[in-house]
């Protein structure tokens, strides 16, 4: 927790676009609706599924089953756990909860002498939500992947323009696009440009408690993850 005298403030990677100022309630029109989910917690999880205890520990701590299939996403009210590589996953949750999880996981890995680790990436990543009837078309304008084919509950790591992104599709309503902080300005401008022919609008995102990602917007800020 911040010490007295210092008042740390956070700025998300898309902070400079002042998205909250132009956000409006989403309407069911033909436009593309978009906004950032700022300040979520992200951790890269590394481990060996062949090691006894690894998957169990992850599920025990996070309540999320370790996804073993390429691109699969485990979802729960407290966050998501995505397959990104055979020995690598990405955990997304509320910042404070993520800090608690990673501390417990690393302690557990050490105790069980597992070749596993978490790497905090909360400062390095951000998520944007992209919805509206044409949201997949917007992706088709920018990337060569067959986005229409992503099954619900899956993510794909691919390229939009000249940036690597992860596209997470949990339902038919929209997609989450995950990208790196330093690429955020570029990716946002690209999405905005591609969406322009359909109409582009920034929407208010509600902290829906039943949603694995929107729910993570709820709690107060700032909250810290250890160095």
């Amino acid at each position: 927790m911040p010490k007295q005298g210092f008042q740390p403030f956070m700025e998300s990677p898309l902070h400079h676009f002042k998205l909250d100022a132009e956000a409006q309630p989403r309407r069911a029109d033909g436009r593309i609706w978009c906004n950032e989910l700022p300040h979520l917690g992200y951790a890269v999880l590394r481990g060996d599924t062949a090691e006894a205890g690894f998957a169990q520990l992850v599920e025990q701590v996070t309540g999320l089953a370790l996804p073993l299939k390429a691109g699969a996403v485990s979802q729960g009210p407290q966050g998501v756990l995505m397959w990104t590589s055979p020995d690598e996953w990405l955990l997304v949750s509320h910042r404070q909860r993520l800090a608690d999880w990673t501390a417990q996981l690393d302690a557990g890995f050490a105790a069980q002498q597992l070749f596993a680790q978490t790497v905090d990436s909360s400062g390095g990543l951000t998520l944007a939500w992209l919805g509206g009837t044409q949201h997949i078309t917007v992706l088709r304008h920018l990337g060569v992947y067959d986005f229409e084919s992503i099954p619900l509950g899956h993510m794909v790591s691919t390229v939009l323009g000249k940036a690597t992104v992860q596209v997470i599709r949990l339902d038919g309503d929209g997609v989450f696009v995950l990208f790196r902080r330093s690429f955020a300005d570029y990716v946002w401008r690209l999405l905005r440009r591609a969406a322009q022919p359909y109409g582009f609008a920034v929407c208010q995102l509600e902290a829906r408690s039943d949603h694995p990602l929107f729910a993570q917007l709820a709690a107060p800020q700032p909250l810290l993850v250890s160095a």
């Binding site: 990677p13 400079h16 323009g161 902080r181 330093s182 690429f183 300005d185 570029y186 401008r189």
Partner: peptide
Amino acid sequence: PHVGETFDVRRYTAMH
């Protein structure tokens, strides 16, 4: 779309 402000990736630091 790879023209103007989206011609190439511009990476920014948090202190920009």
